[in-house]
């Protein structure tokens, strides 16, 4: 059995519910960053891209798509939000808001 065949054998799972979940990131236009648009099911990366094209960009929303299998994303644990995020709340001086900017500087 060739590697390609083996790949298909492993990846094809006829029952749709066995298809893994993928996260979809779309760049809406050149110069902007890819943003998370949603998720979908697909048997492999190629199918995930095609599905993402059909599900998320059919109304001209994008110029580039990334897909990543959801299991490959490491997420922070909401239970740890206390130690993860709350210490930053009272440290306003970490924002660059204490400078006097000349009027000529725009878009800040």
């Amino acid at each position: 059995m060739s590697e390609l065949q083996l790949r298909f054998q492993i990846q094809i799972q006829i029952h749709m519910k066995k298809w893994p979940l993928w996260e979809v990131f779309v760049r809406s236009k050149n110069g902007l960053e890819h943003r998370h648009f949603g998720s979908l099911h697909a048997a492999d990366a190629d199918m995930a891209l095609e599905n993402a094209r059909d599900v998320y960009t059919r109304r001209n929303e994008g110029v580039s798509i990334w897909v990543v299998e959801s299991k490959n994303i490491t997420a922070s644990n909401p239970e740890h939000n206390g130690e993860m995020f709350e210490p930053a709340q009272d440290k306003v001086y970490r924002h660059p808001t204490f400078y006097d900017l000349p009027d000529e500087v725009k878009h800040m």
């Binding site: 054998q9 094809i12 006829i14 048997a43 095609e50």
Partner: peptide, 18 residues
């Protein structure tokens, strides 16, 4: 054509049933 060709390959080279 790309979409349907891909599916022909997936089903053909998939399980015995597909």
């Amino acid at each position: 054509e790309r979409f349907t060709s891909d599916w022909i390959k997936r089903l053909g080279d998939g399980t015995a049933e597909s």
